[in-house]
Structures are given as C-alpha cells and as structure tokens.
Design a protein around this nucleic acid. Structure first.
Ligand SMILES: [Mn+2]
Ligand SMILES: [Mn+2]
Ligand SMILES: [Zn+2]
Ligand SMILES: [Zn+2]
Lengths: 142, 142
DNA sequence: GTAACTTTGCAACCCGGTTGCACTTCCTTT
DNA sequence: AAAGGAAGTGCAACCGGGTTGCAAAGTTAC
C-alpha cells in the first residue's frame, strides 16, 4: 500500500467505504498510507503536532468499522492498524498473517500469506482469526 | 487439564519445572489446574480473598518463564494463561490454536489443534506464533 | 545464630484506551 | 439567508490492566 496517492484518490477511497471525507480523516489516511508497518494510536498521535488523541481514536474506530483498516493485536499492549486491500471485507477468507519483529517492534502485514484454514471441534463457529507470528524481520537480520 | 491432583502432585509439577514450591504458588497452581478455560490476572485475583495482585502477577510471570503455563493474547485487553502440557517446551512445534468466544468471553486452548506451519518470506525468522480464533463456542451455541 | 537470598505485600505509578460533555462544523429544510 | 439538526472535534477526566520500588517476612546456607 504505497504512497503515490493524490488528495482526490484519498477522497475517493474514503468515499468508497462510506466515510465522510473530513480534513482530519484525510490527514489520518495520508499517514496510514505512508506506513510500511502497522501503526498504533500512540504512534499515530506522534505524527501530529496538535491533534487530539480522542479524535484520532475515533477516526481509527470509524475506519475500522467501515473496513478501511483492520486491527492487529500483536501482544505489545498497543493495538495496531493497517490499511485493508481495496477489495477486503474482513471476512475470514480475506485474512492474512501478521509478523511482529522482536527487535524493531514493527508489525507487518503479510498480505500474501492467507491465514490457514482450521477445522474447529464440532459446535464451534468461526468468525475471525488473529494470527501473529513473532520473530526477527528481514531488515533486522541483515 | 482436570483437577484430580494431590498436593504432592502439585509439588512435583512445580519441581519438574524448577519452581520452588511456596504456599502461594501451590494455591495458584491449584486454581489454574481447575480451570476449563484460560485465566487472566484480574480473574485469578478474584479467586482469592486476600492475595495481592503483585504476588499473583509475579507468580504468573515465574510460571511462564519456567514454562509451566503459556500466555494467550486474545485481544480482550487481558492477557490470559493456561497450563502447558507436561512435555511442552513452548517451541513453535508445541504450539496449539486458541479460541475466544464472543458470547461468554472465555478463551480455550485447542490442545489438539497444532498451529499450522507458515512459510515466511525470505529473511524472516520465526520464533513463535499466537493464533486466536474468535467466534461462538460449543456451549454458547446450544 | 547470623548473613545472604528469595518471596511477599503495599503503594504508587504508567500508559493505552474510553467516555461525557460542550463546542464547532456541516448539511438539510424552510 | 436563517434556523435546526446531525455529525465531527477537543478537552478533561476516568478506567483498568500491568508494572516497579521498596520494605517486611520468610527461607536457606554457613
Ligand atoms: Mn494486516
Ligand atoms: Mn493454550
Ligand atoms: Zn525488525
Ligand atoms: Zn462461549
């Protein structure tokens, strides 16, 4: 999800997910689209001089509800978020694996590694999966 | 991991993991061994009249370091723990899948569902996996 | 019995997340 | 254009799980 994205692109992206494109939201989407790793609320906050934590919090919440971004619980204590792919509906079939680097602390979407199918015991109903691998990332190993 | 466990059993279990068997630790192990679902610090606290949060916290920490229990991050905001199987060394091969029920909030170890093998991109080193499925559990569906 | 080490208890703190409420902005209706 | 309502924003206060520092109590080694 790289950055070459005009303001118009962003408006359209928000629009396609039924999110009213306010100034704040465009700024947040801009930050999100520049990330190579997932980002949490505290880190997002640090990208702004004067923005309020609550607003950012609620922006992320809206984005998540509208499936513009997805949540990643990596066990670091901060919930992280990353952009969904264009077609993602956050259904079990859309899900991919995540990777948390113990060294740099970054959490990556492995967009092209789908979460493996699991056969649950009888009677269990699957709604979602959070799969996070931890280890050392490629950059930190070099 | 049901309960039929004598005090001697517990001492032996602690001993086998190189944990000095204090009174507190035996009590905590006792509670842990009675659970059918993973348990977090706040819930563990509630099982005791007068025990201190810090002590329980550190007991869990010790237990985890010594691989008597393993941690489960299920995204509820509370880290949960469950007993490891006798032979578990918490290596990638020992890991199993977990299930969080949206309805009752309980988190279960699916001890006999191993975490599937993942082929990471080149350069990534895998050290562990946290795989949590969420949905509705068998009892809540009935 | 004394010294060294470990465990426990209490208090205080940290930090991410969340809520209530007032103010502003935007949009619709007249 | 004015009025009214809905949606978004900012601030402050709060919550809860987790964590640390430090002193007291218990254990072990000599
Ligand atoms: Mn992702
Ligand atoms: Mn487990
Ligand atoms: Zn790294
Ligand atoms: Zn349930």
């Amino acid at each position: 999800m790289p950055s070459g994205m005009t303001d118009e692109d962003k408006k359209r992206q928000l629009d396609s997910r039924d999110i009213k494109p306010t100034a704040m939201r465009e700024l947040v989407l801009d930050v999100l689209s520049r990330q190579t790793a997932a980002i949490g609320l505290p880190e997002l906050e640090a990208h702004f001089e004067k923005a309020d934590r609550t607003t950012l919090y609620r922006t992320l919440k809206t984005f998540e509800e509208k499936k513009l971004i997805h949540k990643i619980v990596d066990g670091t204590g901060t919930v992280k978020y990353a952009l969904c792919s264009e077609t993602c509906e956050c259904e079990p079939d859309d899900l991919h694996v995540h990777f948390l680097c113990e060294k740099c602390g970054k959490t990556y979407c492995l967009y092209d590694i789908p979460v493996p199918t699991i056969n649950l015991p009888h009677g269990f109903k699957l709604e979602g999966v959070n799969m996070v691998i931890n280890g050392i990332c490629a950059s930190c190993r070099k």
